[in-house]
Design a protein around this nucleic acid. Structure first.
Length: 594
RNA sequence: GGGGGCGUGGCGAAGUUGGUUAUCGCACCGGCCUGUCAAGCCGGGGACCGCGGGUUCAAGUCCCGUCGCUCCCGCCA
């Protein structure tokens, strides 16, 4: 039997089609059998149309109606007719009409569903992933997939218009030691050797600049073998960008332009430009994080100098030891119970704070918590914080980094719990002027904060080896609503500067040549000054879609254990496959413990 | 590696200080119903309460262990 091919989609029909005979293909979304009359909501990617089988329908259709179940795949031919006045459904775009079935083909049947295909499935995530094909039928998932397409389409449109070439780079590449753990692929032709999947196309895009390709972008799959989170998993997609003969400003302005275009094209939202900028130091000082959510205020204050003068030993000692005391004024929350404050303290402790000091502001002054230790500097504190009666003040004393980070976590928790962030807002900002190096306590040496090919800012070139910790890099992060959306830098193209950086991070020249020789060698042949950035596509779409996890915008994601419940990967492989690769497992049963 | 939450028919949940036959909604099966749109009404089947052990006259409930999922810390240039 030939399939009755659709003449329209399930979202297409309106009153103007009344009187025409149409064929629809789709799935049974809802099914209401009233005995004498039977309604089917037929669904496809485009919408839902109501099909009616009533007393005028052929007898065989009325019989067929009783065997129809959820998610049967149907072809329906019938007459489009206007619904009787009160039967119109204003909540449906096709709600003015219905299709009176004249012929129905059951294209395929559906077993009892593990969960209903619904706007928002309530099923557990691993079940949704196992039956992803059902989950993806839901309008919310289809909306996310559509948005993702709009974003990539808009990206290609914008980048092409800006003169960028989309260039593919290999996914089987040399393992490089820096950064995250590599995902490895054994080579059959070169037994005992391995490819790595790229953590990013970094080396290749820089080589493309040496090649004179000048403006490159790629929507690139990247792989990092690290533990998953709500906003990251083993494989993810970057909008990867690299440009020659540019300064930081050129890169920032290109990315800003891209974001503006993407939001405009995909969501009809005008993002205000320019995006505000914060130095790393300022972001940490004011928001306690290098990815500040600026949809709300609630900024941190430095009270180290006041704390130094106080009789509160914890504070005074921290200040004397060169530490920092940070305070956060929570307006009107003097009503907070001890328990609520303990919840905030938990948030601070997760990030390494030893405790969360607090007091409430009353008309009498400071009260409760650590108030009795701070009475001597109470007036100064209140002035400094511009605190008024009814406020709650929470404080952390620790190293600068821990004090900022821990209180920043409290700020985030408050922002979330109090609903401070404006709904539907997208607040972008740049974080710039990152330190180039960070101290690694374990190896007692310096590590690159971003990667080892990032350029020190010019002012530090001469002195960088004397005081690596003070060196600012030409680094930049794009942040939106508290998520790091993109990260990049101006690269080193001068071999002498590169050598200095290698020296600082304890990398011998031989070592560098062995690992990155192909890139460094290319730099001997007239490399242009260049820089770039990479934006996380999954996160971008997640934020735009208002979803809590990137798994909602990735069609076939892995779970937090790196497993895909759909096809049950990763899996064991045949002994023969291993033999071909000359691999032997130390624990053939794969118990997980070697 | 560490911490928090969750695990009860196919799905989502309830289950009190331990106490008869484990409850509800959806789905499923049978019946009724001519205008619903989360249709309604009547009836039915379906659960060793994640798994293992322990305490007890008695465990979904308490204890110990273990597995899975999830959020977070570490990790993620």
């Amino acid at each position: 039997m030939d399939t009755m091919k659709r003449t329209h989609t399930c979202g297409a029909l309106r009153s103007e089609h009344v009187g025409s005979t149409v064929t629809l293909n789709g799935w049974i979304h809802r099914n209401r059998d009233h005995g004498g009359i039977h309604f089917i909501n037929l669904r496809d990617r485009y919408g839902i149309t109501q099909i009616v089988i009533d007393q005028d329908a052929p007898k065989h259709l009325q019989d067929l109606a009783t065997e129809l179940k959820f998610e049967y795949c149907l072809a329906v031919t019938g007459l489009v007719r206007e619904r009787p006045g009160t039967m119109k459904n204003p909540d449906m775009t096709t709600g003015d009409i219905e299709v009176a079935a004249a012929e129905i083909q059951i294209l395929s049947r559906c077993e009892t569903l593990p969960f209903m295909v619904d706007e928002k499935s309530e099923a557990r995530e691993d079940l949704r992933l196992k039956y992803r094909y059902l989950d993806l039928r839901s309008f919310s998932m289809q909306r996310n997939i559509a948005l993702r397409h709009q974003v990539t389409w808009a990206t290609r449109e914008y980048m092409t218009r800006q003169g960028f070439f989309e260039i593919e780079t290999p996914t089987l590449i040399r393992s490089t030691p820096e950064g995250a753990r590599d995902l490895l692929v054994p080579s059959r032709l070169q037994p005992g050797k391995f490819y790595a999947l790229p953590q990013s196309p970094q080396m290749f895009k820089q080589i493309l600049m040496v090649s004179g390709l000048d403006r490159y972008y790629q929507i690139a799959r990247c792989y990092r073998d690290e533990d998953a989170r709500g906003d990251r998993q083993l494989e993810f997609t970057q909008i990867d960008v690299e440009m020659s003969f540019v300064s930081r400003e050129d890169v920032l302005s290109t990315l800003e332009g891209l974001m503006v275009h993407v939001f405009s094209a995909a969501m009809q939202i005008d993002l205000p430009r320019p995006f505000p900028r914060f130095s790393y130091r300022e972001a940490m000082d004011r928001f306690g994080t290098d990815k500040p959510d600026i949809r709300f205020g609630l900024e941190l204050e430095d009270i180290t100098e006041t704390a130094r003068k106080s009789g509160f030993r914890v504070f005074a000692d921290t200040a004397e030891a060169g530490g920092t005391v940070k305070a956060l004024r929570v307006p009107g929350k003097a009503e907070y119970s001890r328990k609520q404050i303990e919840e905030l303290e938990k948030a601070a402790k997760i990030y390494g704070a030893k405790g969360l000091a607090w007091f409430k502001v009353t008309t009498e002054g400071l009260e409760g918590g650590s108030a009795k230790f701070l009475q001597d500097v109470g007036k100064e504190l209140l002035d400094c914080l511009q605190a008024v009666p009814g406020d709650l003040v929470v404080m952390v004393a620790d190293t600068w980094n821990t004090a900022c980070t821990a209180l920043g976590a409290v700020r985030s928790a408050l922002g979330r719990d109090l609903g401070l962030a404006e709904a539907g807002a997208f607040r972008f900002c740049w974080v710039i002027d990152f330190p180039l190096f960070e101290w690694n306590e374990e190896k007692k040496g310096w590590d690159p904060m971003h990667h080892m090919f990032s350029m020190p800012q010019e002012a530090f070139l001469a002195t960088m080896e004397d005081d690596p910790g003070a060196v600012m890099g030409d680094l930049y992060d794009l942040v939106c609503n508290g998520y790091e959306l993109a990260s990049g830098s101006i690269r080193i193209h001068d071999p002498e500067i590169q050598k200095k950086v290698f020296r600082i991070i304890g990398f011998s020249e031989e070592e560098a040549l062995e690992r990155f020789g192909f890139l460094l060698n290319s730099f001997r042949y007239g490399p242009p000054p260049h820089g770039g950035i990479a934006a996380g596509l999954d996160r971008l779409v997640m934020i735009m879609a208002g979803e809590p996890s990137i798994r909602e915008v990735i069609p076939f994601p892995k779970n937090t254990a790196g497993i895909s419940p759909l096809e049950d990967s990763p899996s064991t492989v045949d002994e023969a496959q291993l033999r071909e690769l000359r691999l032997t497992l130390s624990n053939p049963e794969g118990s997980g413990e070697a």
